[in-house]
Amino acid sequence: MPVVTLRDWIPVALSADLPAATVIPAHTPSGILALWRSANGELATLADRCPHRGMRLSYGFVRGEALSCIYHGWSYGQNGQCRRIPAHPDLTPPAAIKAASYPTEERNGVIWIALGEPKAPPPALEGFKPLRSITLEVDAKLISATGDVRTRLAGVDVLLLIVGISGSETVAHLMVDAAATESDCVTVSRAAEGWRRECEQLGVKELAS
């Protein structure tokens, strides 16, 4: 079974890690984007740079259905269009003032972002459920040439969605067998720490060689 990666879509977070009315930085191989969920639960992703003076929108705050920049409070809707400029409250911002937006979808508890025009929805990854995201100090290429890892941790089938975010850093979104019990999940999570250490050792060996 081909593992996940069409790579039209990049997995960036688990749904459980993005509650309503929050914004987080989404790490992709092309850089950081501002991923947020509105008060009503709608997901959106915008370029991580406010068009006003370049402040990272991932440092902003979500209020209602808009993401506001922390610097001067410029607010953006899910399509990236500026809705309000607090220093000029009587101005309706023109459609031209906007932050780039990216298709965002969540499926089976994983949030995916597309950097271009996706040809299909993100994969469902049936048979798995999300457990946690792990950051590793190692080049993704040392973990997997194909992009994702199917293996067993603590005797349980797992799928790790691998995203290289720099030459020395990787994010892995860990999915476990959908039938895994609560206690399985705890032991898998612990085993994942061991897996992380092994991967990071590969990096250390690589540097030394």
Binding site: D48, R53, G54, M55, R56, Y71
Partner: peptide
């Protein structure tokens, strides 16, 4: 956390009001 780190003297990618 402002992009770019350097201060732009050309505001071509900004919107000063």
């Amino acid at each position: 956390n402002q992009i770019p780190r350097l201060l732009p003297l050309d505001p071509g990618r900004e919107i000063p009001t």
